[in-house]
């Protein structure tokens, strides 16, 4: 009897063991299944295609009335305080490029907004609608608000004008501008893309077609010249050449835009006093050539005559919003 009982006990223990193993196996299966399903679900969500957000439309008739765009850049700040004292017309003053190394980076990571930074008064900015990404939405004019499309106009100048061309949102306007261009180098500097795709001078480009309006701005690269009367004389030569090539156009001579205190970091010649002084000579050049003088400087200067700090990262080249203020002044006054 005892033997029978122990046999049964042994048997039941064995059976219990087998059942236990089966249960563990079952749990194992369930666990693995759950894990697999969870991984599949995760992978499926990662496989979803990313939707491409189209930011740039593929239709537009931006024209480009002549391919001569402002893409030839320049670095304006190649003003050279030429100590040579030569004063003949077309004195060769070559930019040493030092100013060009503007340490533009005072606020490099700024967003599109330009004037949020300092709360400084910004100059005459009318402003309405939104500028994309501009935290000062509503403070500056937009391309859409400036009704003048400048389709009949050409802008001639240095890198500040290049910047205007890049940021103004006026695809029908023409820009013959180049970084570092001045009233001396304009005669020989072949940096303008012509209609045929080759490079030529500003005058080569102007010979291609007629415009109704010509806006000219030089001076920032010449403010360090030792003789401003020489600058004035050369500027008049340039304007007369423009008038010869564009006999029916209204030619506007723009004052040099102000600079902010940051510009001193580029070159000590960039002071409000120098800018204002040079503008007197530019005004004379306009009068002597029978052209209209447009005081765009007044649209962008603060009370002390300087450019607002937030208008430029290097004190010289305007950020987009301030380019629009400039453009609006031109639209309203010409």
């Amino acid at each position: 009897m005892e033997r029978k009982k122990s046999k049964v006990k042994r048997r039941s223990k064995t059976l219990q063991g087998i059942i236990g193993v089966f249960c563990l196996a079952a749990l194992g299966f369930v666990g693995v299944w759950a894990f697999n399903n969870a991984m599949e679900g995760f992978n499926a969500s990662k496989a979803d295609p990313i939707s491409a957000v189209s930011q740039v439309t593929s239709r537009n008739d931006s024209a480009d009335t002549g391919a001569e765009n402002a893409s030839s850049l320049t670095d304006d700040t190649s003003v050279v305080p030429d100590e040579s004292k030569s004063e003949e017309s077309k004195a060769d003053v070559s930019g040493d490029g030092s100013e060009a190394e503007s340490e533009a980076g005072s606020t490099p990571e700024e967003t599109e907004d330009s004037s949020s930074a300092a709360g400084e008064e910004d100059s005459s900015s009318e402003s309405e609608a939104d500028v994309p990404g501009d935290t000062n939405a509503g403070k500056f004019p937009t391309a859409a608000e400036i009704k003048d499309d400048f389709a009949d106009a050409v802008f001639i100048g240095n890198s500040r004008t290049v910047g205007l061309g890049m940021n103004c949102g006026k695809p029908l306007a023409t820009f013959y501008a180049s970084t570092g261009l001045n009233v001396n180098t304009i005669w020989d500097s072949a940096t303008i893309t012509l209609d045929n795709g080759s490079y030529g001078t500003v005058f080569d480009a102007l010979a291609q077609k007629q415009f109704s309006r010509v806006y000219v701005m030089f001076g920032i690269n010449e403010v360090g010249w030792p003789y401003w009367d020489s600058f004035q004389s050369q500027y008049e030569d340039v304007v007369n050449k423009i008038k010869e090539l564009q006999p029916d156009a209204r030619v506007y001579i723009q004052s040099v835009l102000p600079v902010s205190s940051l510009a001193i970091n580029t070159n000590a010649v960039f002071t409000t006093e120098n800018i204002d002084g040079l503008n007197e000579f530019i005004k004379n050049a306009a009068a002597n050539t029978g052209c209209t003088y447009l005081d765009v400087n007044s649209a962008l200067r603060q009370e002390d005559g300087s450019l607002p700090l937030e208008a430029s990262t290097d004190g010289i080249h305007l950020m987009k919003d301030y380019c629009m203020v400039w453009l609006k002044y031109l639209a309203d006054n010409s």
Binding site: Q55, V56, S62, N69, E112, G133, M166, G169, P171, K320
Partner: peptide
Amino acid sequence: NELESAMVEKI
């Protein structure tokens, strides 16, 4: 700054 679509070809 973002370049407007109408200006892409030009610039």
